[in-house]
Structures are given as structure tokens and as C-alpha cells.
Nucleic acid binder design. Structure first.
Lengths: 194, 194
DNA sequence: AATTACCCTTGACTTAAGTTAAGAAAACAC
DNA sequence: GTGTTTTCTTAACTTAAGTCAAGGGTAATT
């Protein structure tokens, strides 16, 4: 199981055998059942996650309505915006499926950075990669229509449509379920006509 | 001038006197005139910037139209998504005003990280902060209307409206200049009625 | 001073999303 | 199995954004 984490990290930097052993020894693997709330609004966030298996969504309430902000699946890291900061979370984190994750905490992280400086380099590099991804996602989203957003998600994360209800996907895409339904209908008609 | 950079960094971690001196000695300060293109589409990006003064925008062409993806001003870092990667940039970076910046390169960065491990910690922490900001910006943008996006920009970066043409701001907000014009008209009418 | 280029606004029309309400369809519980 | 809840779709209506075209304003250029 830990190999997945090593594999993920190896994409970005060379992992020495020593570091690999340290990572495996220090990793806390946990399982949670579908429906588990990992973090509630108002709580302090002291945990981040790397998903081996399953799906997590983050959301908040606005006018009594759940707004889905993110959907995380295998090989993704889940770091609440308030992780390690002493401020209450605005977001809920909920397991949409049974999940298997490693759990990280600020203390554990700092301890590991002190022992293994390469890990800090790794963390910085992965961070830069994530920043570049967010930049691109934001730019793309800003300059596309709901239909293009739907099509892009189908291309980049087709699995989501097999495992997450459409109303949650609609919210994640920033539209109403009715709009998503209409878009899907339009596209089906087009493909049938061809 | 370098004090601004130190001030910026001090927000995130304690800067030792030794590091401060090293930063000041190693910093390349450059000036560019309004209209200068810092990076062109197709070029490799080997420079990042910290803005002391002025305004930079990034954009790309789509169907012959300029799409503005970002607007950077004082105390912001400008890191092209392809910075340090050996791939051609899709984006242009243009000075909307005369600017004063420090210029960073991957080589210089790595040299500094090797000499001053605290700087790597700093970089990691600032990176995490930037990630949290992008997350929030993306979530907010997804779940708001064009009018709310306009109002939020007015609150968070009112200076932009004094220094950047409205058609560029419209593009940055992901809408057409006509829409921005109508939104401003609607809002002016509302405030006058009250 | 006249010309040009650029920026901003306006109006008419088209298209799509939000809203409200209602009803299938599917999943779940008992 | 039946009943219940959740999810998904549809329709009618309202509202707002995109599109196209035109015109006014302002600053820069010659």
C-alpha cells in the first residue's frame, strides 16, 4: 500500500532508500467508512490526507445549500486550506466512499523535514506543481462555458461520473443540476444526430 | 528597496540577519518599461519575479483574441506555470506599467537553498499559502455570478480599476467588456436610487 | 487641427443559465 | 414486496450573458 505513496513521490524527485524506509515506518494508514465526516465546519484542521483508495469531497453551506468545492480521488492529496493554521474550517470534508488514506499532521511533517531535508525539497517541488495546476485550472475555468467545463471534466476525470451523483458534480462545476441535465441532453442529441 | 522583499518574507517566517544579508547581496533588481514583453508564447521560462513596483499581466491568444489570465501588482510574485520546466510557454507576460522587480532563476534559487536551508522552509510555507489562496479563489469564482466577481475584485483589489483598462479587467474576470459595462451601469443605478 | 487608434458604452437580438414546480427513475429501508 | 427518500429530468418562465453593430469619448500621433 505504501508503495503507492512512494510511486507518487518518485514522479517528482528521486527517493533514497533511507527516505523510503523512513516514510513507510512513519506513515499512519487509516480507513474510514462512506459517510464519515473527516472535518466539520468550525473545527481546527490538524490532518491532511493522501488517498490510496476512495473518494472525498469538500463542501460548505450557503443559504442552507451544500456547495461542493472539491472532489478528491486516488493518488491525490487533501489539504484543507486551514490545515496547520489555528483557525476554524469553513469547509466540511466527507467520505463519498469507503476510503484508505495516510494521515499527516504538522508535527509529524516538521519532524520528518528535520530528519530528512530532501523531503522538504520534495514538498516544495510538489507544492510548485500543485500551484501551477491550480493556476491552469482557474484560468481555464474563468474562460470557458458550462458546457466546456463539463466536457473537460469528462476528459480529465471520467471516473467521477461513475462514482459521484450528478447533482454533486453539477455543484462542483459551479452550476445547477438542471443546467447539467440540459447540457447532457443537448450533447446526447448532437452525438445521436451524427 | 530590498527591504520590501524582506518585509514580504517576514510575514511568513523569521528571517535571520545572515539570511537577510545573503538575500540582499544576491538579489538582481531590474527595471522594465511599460509595454515590455517579459515572456513570449513559445519561449522557455527561466525567470520569476517579485514586484516592487508596477503592474504585469499574463495573457494568451484564442481565436485571435487576447485572454488575460492574471494581473500582478506590488508585493506579488510572478511565476509562469512553465518556470524552470523545459517546455514552451503558452502565456505572454507584459508590463502594463514601468516596473521594478527582483528576478529569480532556478540556478540562483537552488544555490540559495543549498546555502540557506531556512530559505527552502520559507519557500515551502509561502507555497502552501499560495495554494490555499488559489483554492479559495477557484472555489469562490466557481460559485459566483459575474456581478459578484466584479464586486469582489473591487473589494480585494480596488487599485486595479485605477490602473488597468476595463476591457482587460473584463477579460480577467472571464466576461466580455459589454457585460462588465452593463454590470457597472446596473450597480450605479442601484446606488443612486438609494 | 485633423487623423487615427483605442476604450467604453448602448441597443437589439440570440442563447443559455437560474428559478420554480412537478413528475420519473433509481436506490434504500423496512 | 411496499413505501420512502434521493437523484435525475422536464417544462415554463425570468434574468443575464454573448453577439453584432454602431456611436461617442479621449488620448496619442502626425
Amino acid at each position: 500500500m505504501q508503495n503507492e505513496l512512494i510511486k507518487f513521490m518518485s514522479k517528482y524527485v528521486d527517493i533514497t532508500k533511507e527516505l523510503e524506509v523512513a516514510l513507510i515506518e512513519s506513515s499512519f494508514i487509516k480507513q474510514f467508512l462512506k459517510g464519515t465526516i473527516l472535518l466539520k465546519e468550525g473545527q481546527i484542521s490538524n490532518e491532511c490526507f493522501f488517498i490510496f483508495n476512495g473518494c472525498i469531497r469538500s463542501f460548505y453551506f450557503e443559504d442552507g445549500e451544500e456547495i461542493t468545492t472539491a472532489l478528491y480521488t486516488e493518488e491525490q492529496t487533501v489539504t484543507p486550506p486551514t490545515y496547520g493554521k489555528n483557525v476554524p474550517s469553513k469547509l466540511y470534508y466527507e467520505c463519498l466512499e469507503d476510503i484508505i488514506v495516510t494521515v499527516g499532521t504538522p508535527d509529524l511533517e516538521n519532524e520528518m523535514y528535520a530528519k530528512h531535508p530532501q523531503l522538504e525539497t520534495l514538498s516544495r517541488i510538489v507544492g510548485n506543481r500543485i500551484i501551477a495546476n491550480y493556476q491552469e485550472e482557474l484560468f481555464d475555468f474563468k474562460h470557458s462555458t458550462n458546457e466546456q467545463r463539463y466536457l473537460r471534466l469528462q476528459e480529465t476525470r471520467p471516473d467521477l461520473f461513475q462514482r459521484v451523483p450528478l447533482n454533486i458534480i453539477a455543484s462542483y462545476l459551479g452550476m445547477k443540476p438542471e443546467s447539467l441535465s440540459r447540457i447532457r441532453k443537448r450533447l446526447h442529441l448532437k452525438t445521436k444526430k451524427i
